[in-house]
Design a protein around this nucleic acid. Structure first.
Lengths: 334, 334
DNA sequence: CCGGTTGCTGCAACCGGTTGCAACCACCGG
DNA sequence: CCGGTGGTTGCAACCGGTTGCAGCAACCGG
């Protein structure tokens, strides 16, 4: 392992000059700089990150705390963070909480001592726990608001309200919302947004679930919906759920969109599907990750906590159509 | 920020003793140790990771290099790595290469200087590039074999061969394999495994694709297959693809499994689906991640490169059945 | 010709831990 | 009573960089 001292010696300068030639090029004479750089290159010198971090106090690492990484909603956010960071030569220190409050707090504590900033994605910890880190280092939340902490909000509540409004506009008067299980902050916001929008549009809302974000859950719920003859439109809170509903309704002989309109309050491209031609949201998850990094940088030095709202966009596809009286139950296709 | 020196002073011992009390408890008298620990706890002392790394040379970080994290195949592997590491109090330094050779190499280089080990997941770099890191630190590959480098192999080639054999056993004589696009090491192995198994079982193989792991790709291919009357079974290389095929065949009025048997050479639980009741593989991705960590630890100090083979398991579901002559084309359901 | 800038470089301290070595103190057996 | 032994502790060097400050030479205007 070649150190700065080695380079300095080989270049005939002091450690200090070598350091400056590499880190503060403008503080050193041009010819000296050239010489040091050349020597460093031929010797294959690389900075020792630990040593550097020790003196500067900056590690070049950002901690990312996420409930799960095998989740088509969170993964793109992390990707966005990574992309924004790599532009600055920084890296992600990843921790997965598995949705547990205690491990979230514990992991955050461990990370806090070795990173320059912390990104909490959809944290489940109480406000106080999250705020407790802000005195140690810059913190930003994603998909959650904590007083006095900067945060990125992905406006899925607004998006799901758009969907309800869209369906109401197509004449649907009884729609079902299949909601998610997580007692998370964001899930609650979405639920109330749906209720609010339904009330405002004067449509009848049947809340189903909660169920997991699983295809099989969709299959199960589909049977239920097929039997519930008054409902003419269904909104699923997640992509996988939607796929299950899609398959399940089809198996039950219910046609989409002729008999029932189907929409997802989620981004289908996250599950690699541009064209099951379904009405859904465009949710710029990667941009949310990028925005989180931007807020983090702004928060250093600390200033007033900023909020960034990421808007979703309603993509109307062929799975929603004008409401009709549902045809009498056909024979299941299978 | 409270340092070791602070603790030592408050406890009335030297830095050395304080250090030992915390890191090498057996080297210090019981009562001294108690005192130091108590003081450290009340003062809220935490080790400075950088300082520690500087002297010990170990950072407690493992670099994980992955083509993409928003991918139901890779994500669980990373989760496995994380789980195995957290048992040892280590963390993941994550880097996403986006499948590019150059950025893979570059990222690996950056990571190499700050981690204790490197996990290459499905690397696309040439053997030599990967091996070049082994002199600097322990390296392990997943889903790829590089001479003299320890690796974890997930035996999806064996699994897809099992599927072909299974179909042959059901009397299928003409099956289609819809293969993936990536010119990756593992994709090639799978392709040849399919061909080999088909030849051995004496079935006629139609290779379709390559297509992306996307639902819409499945929809497109489904039309093609619906028209190809001789084929009685289809194997999809990825879960999303399978879902697309499933939806697409159904839309084309082809019944599964009465008209066509359908199977995935992938793990459907990775996409949150236990029960589209489809014949597929159980692929223990998380275990692969855990195994990677084990190999990494074994590789320190360096010894003979070990290989771990992770077996897949064929899960026969209701989507495959005995081959029949396909019914004449029914009217598409939609 | 002189004092004052300006620009570049080196000395040495410092970041916060770890660890080899020596000092010290019982306490032991001879 | 003495040298030896084992268990504890402290001193100080060290890991590999960064940086405040001082030294030094060249160059400036007066």
């Amino acid at each position: 392992m070649v150190t700065l001292a080695d380079v300095a010696r080989a270049a005939g300068v002091s450690k200090a000059t070598a350091s400056r030639a590499l880190s503060r090029p403008d503080m050193v004479a041009a010819d000296t700089r050239e010489r040091v750089l050349a020597v460093a290159a031929t010797m294959g010198f690389e900075f020792n990150a630990s040593a550097r971090a020790l003196t500067t106090g900056r590690t070049g690492l950002i901690g990312v705390l996420v409930p799960s990484i095998a989740n088509p909603y969170f993964a793109p956010i992390v990707t966005g963070v990574q992309r924004a960071l790599s532009a600055h030569g920084e890296n992600i220190l990843l921790a997965v909480s598995e949705g547990s409050q205690s491990s979230e707090h514990e992991l955050a504590g461990k990370l806090a001592s070795r990173v320059d900033g912390l990104v909490f994605i959809a944290p489940v910890s109480p406000d106080s726990a999250i705020r407790s880190f802000t005195s140690k280092l810059p913190v930003v939340t994603v998909d959650r608001t904590v007083p006095a902490v900067p945060g990125v909000l992905i406006d899925t509540p607004g998006g799901v309200a758009d969907i309800v409004t869209h369906l109401a506009g197509l004449g649907h008067r009884a729609i079902a919302y299949v909601g998610g299980p997580d007692g998370s902050w964001m899930a609650e916001r979405r639920n109330s947004a749906v209720e609010e929008a339904a009330r405002r549009s004067g449509v009848d809302l049947t809340a189903l679930g909660p169920v997991g974000p699983r295809i099989d859950a969709g299959l199960a719920v589909a049977e239920h919906i097929a039997a519930e003859r008054s409902v003419t439109a269904v909104v699923a809170y997640s992509s996988y759920l939607l796929l299950g509903l899609h398959l399940g309704l089809r198996e039950a002989g219910v046609r989409v969109p002729e008999d029932i309109s189907l929409a997802a309050s989620d981004d289908l491209t996250a599950i690699s599907a541009d064209r099951p031609d379904t009405t859904a949201l465009r949710v710029p998850l990667e941009e949310a990750g990028i925005a989180a990094v931007r807020l983090l940088q702004e928060a250093n030095p600390p200033k007033r906590a900023r909020r960034l709202r990421i808007a979703t966009e309603l993509i109307v596809g062929g799975s929603t159509a004008h409401a009709t009286v549902r045809a009498s139950s056909t024979t299941p296709a299978r």
